[in-house]
Design a protein around this nucleic acid. Structure first.
Lengths: 197, 197
DNA sequence: TTGACAAGTGACCTATCGTTCACTATAATG
DNA sequence: CATTATAGTGAACGATAGGTCACTTGTCAA
């Protein structure tokens, strides 16, 4: 009946794959948790692997849509404190949005097995963030808010520690509050270190 | 015949688990790659899960033995360039030692499924490194080689980006050279930024 | 009203999983 | 030399995996 079954399958697949991995997930359970029997799943996807591919397609499309083009770059903050605030908004969102958390876990788990997961993981965890903050820091230097320096290096030095804390939240959710506090402390330390005097 | 079969099983299990995950590995293949038949494996381990547990025991013991106690802390460098050199020796070793690479991949893959893997991952990827370099930076500040600052914060700011590059090498080995070069550039940038003037 | 189609069911298929067991070869021990 | 434990074999086990298929149901258009 439900026309959105296909999407519900993908949503549940994300849930299960991100917890138990592709190999550790079986179609019976997936179907059962949607209130249908496994053969019903095959009305929407030809195979388990096709579910996996569709899920990756969705994740890649989502990433490109939200972070792929220059028009999605965040605004350049007007003050050092603005950078801290923007960062904390991003961190807070990314560790609390369940779908994004599951996406990260899935990429983390499957990065060694699947080529596309591998590529998306690097973009998602490293290069994407660095590029984004290269733009931010470049703009802040132009505004005289940051000491002149290599913006790409600063972006890497800034985003990698925060990314590490985000991964910590994924791994040990009970440490989320402490990790967020540490992210804020780090962000302030960063602006103190690199802020224009 | 071979008395070391038990260890060979563990070595092969590390190889396979780190590539395909626990659920994605089967005992038949594992046994075959050792040149024996699957029932032979059960002469040494009661179950697949026992192999997993023994492997984790080994990894935990190895970690505690090599990084667990204060006596294993690295010497405090005598110059900023000494810090760069020490860092690069560590990075070079850790991305080229196959067993350590596989250990990291295994922890990465299984961190969401197994409690002990989760705990070891946090130590291995985050807190262990931070503690180690907190000591290093504290010593360098005492020697007047680094500007006075919170050594724990500096250790976090230093190790997290390097850790991110190590993960990149695990994920995309063909980028190893570039990642190592970036690690060195980052290290130099760090000492320039925090070095005592 | 009817016909076509999409969505879901339940029984069944084959392959493979982890695991067991009776058995054999070997090598050390009394 | 007889014995006994160890390491390994090969066939078989039940369970479960992914996948198929004939069939039913509900919906909507002609």
């Amino acid at each position: 009946m439900a026309k959105d079954t296909k999407e519900r399958i993908l949503a549940t697949a994300l849930e299960m794959f991100s917890q138990n991995g592709y190999a550790g997930t079986n179609i019976r359970e997936l179907a059962a948790s949607l209130g249908l029997v496994k053969s019903g799943v095959y009305k929407h996807f030809a195979s388990k692997e096709e579910i996996w591919n569709a899920l990756l397609d969705e994740m890649i499309a989502y990433y490109d849509e939200h972070f792929g083009s220059p028009e999605h770059l965040p605004p350049v903050p007007d003050s050092p404190e603005g950078l801290v605030a923007m960062t904390m908004r991003m961190v807070d969102f990314t560790v609390r949005d369940e779908k994004i958390v599951m996406t990260r876990k899935l990429l983390t788990i499957e990065q060694f097995r699947d080529e596309r997961a591998r590529a998306l993981a690097t973009k998602h965890f490293l290069t994407g963030l660095t590029e984004m903050f290269t733009h931010v820091f470049s703009g802040m230097m132009d505004k005289g808010l940051l000491r002149r320096d290599d913006p790409a290096m600063l972006a890497f030095a800034y985003t990698a520690p925060i990314s590490a804390l985000i991964h910590l939240c994924d791994r040990e959710p009970e440490k989320t509050e402490a990790a967020i506090a540490q992210a804020e402390a780090f962000s302030r330390h960063f602006v103190k270190t690199y802020g224009a005097m």
